Amino acid sequence: MPIEIKELHIKISVDDNPQSSDPAQNNRIEKEQIIAACVEQVMEILAKNRER
């Protein structure tokens, strides 16, 4: 059964002074945060579908 995501909210914050001097490390952390948020929303959708 395919899953359809109707809404996807992505929140990010941009700082002028990054905490790490390594931009590749910052990008990896940001990607991990975005992926974690997406996975959380998909899990919520699956939980709602199971309740029905």
Score class of each variant (00 low, 15 high):
52 R>P: 02
38 C>M: 07
1 M>T: 04
30 E>I: 12
22 D>R: 14
37 A>H: 02
23 P>M: 07
13 S>M: 05
44 E>D: 10
21 S>R: 14
43 M>L: 13
3 I>N: 02
33 Q>M: 14
13 S>W: 02
51 E>H: 06
17 N>G: 08
36 A>V: 00
51 E>M: 10
38 C>K: 01
36 A>M: 03
24 A>W: 08
37 A>K: 00
16 D>I: 06
14 V>P: 00
20 S>M: 10
11 K>W: 05
29 I>W: 07
50 R>E: 06
23 P>H: 02
31 K>I: 11
40 E>R: 12
15 D>P: 13
48 K>S: 04
26 N>P: 01
34 I>Y: 01
52 R>F: 02
28 R>V: 09
23 P>Y: 05
21 S>C: 10
37 A>I: 00
50 R>C: 02
4 E>D: 12
46 L>V: 01
22 D>T: 04
51 E>S: 10
38 C>D: 06
1 M>H: 07
48 K>N: 03
24 A>T: 07
33 Q>I: 10
49 N>D: 11
7 E>F: 03
50 R>L: 04
5 I>L: 04
15 D>A: 15
25 Q>E: 15
9 H>T: 14
29 I>G: 03
17 N>L: 08
26 N>H: 12
17 N>W: 15
20 S>T: 10
52 R>V: 00
2 P>A: 09
3 I>C: 04
29 I>E: 09
13 S>A: 09
45 I>L: 03
44 E>H: 07
34 I>D: 03
31 K>Y: 13
25 Q>R: 15
42 V>K: 05
37 A>M: 09
34 I>Q: 06
20 S>V: 11
1 M>P: 08
25 Q>M: 13
52 R>T: 04
33 Q>R: 15
35 I>L: 13
37 A>G: 08
7 E>A: 03
23 P>V: 05
24 A>H: 12
41 Q>H: 03
28 R>L: 14
34 I>A: 05
7 E>M: 01
15 D>T: 12
26 N>R: 15
24 A>L: 12
50 R>Q: 05
37 A>E: 12
42 V>L: 07
49 N>I: 11
1 M>D: 04
6 K>R: 12
3 I>D: 03
18 P>W: 03
39 V>E: 09
39 V>H: 02
19 Q>Y: 15
32 E>D: 14
29 I>L: 14
49 N>E: 11
43 M>H: 13
22 D>E: 10
19 Q>M: 15
21 S>L: 13
40 E>C: 06
45 I>V: 06
22 D>C: 10
16 D>T: 07
30 E>S: 11
38 C>P: 06
31 K>W: 12
8 L>C: 04
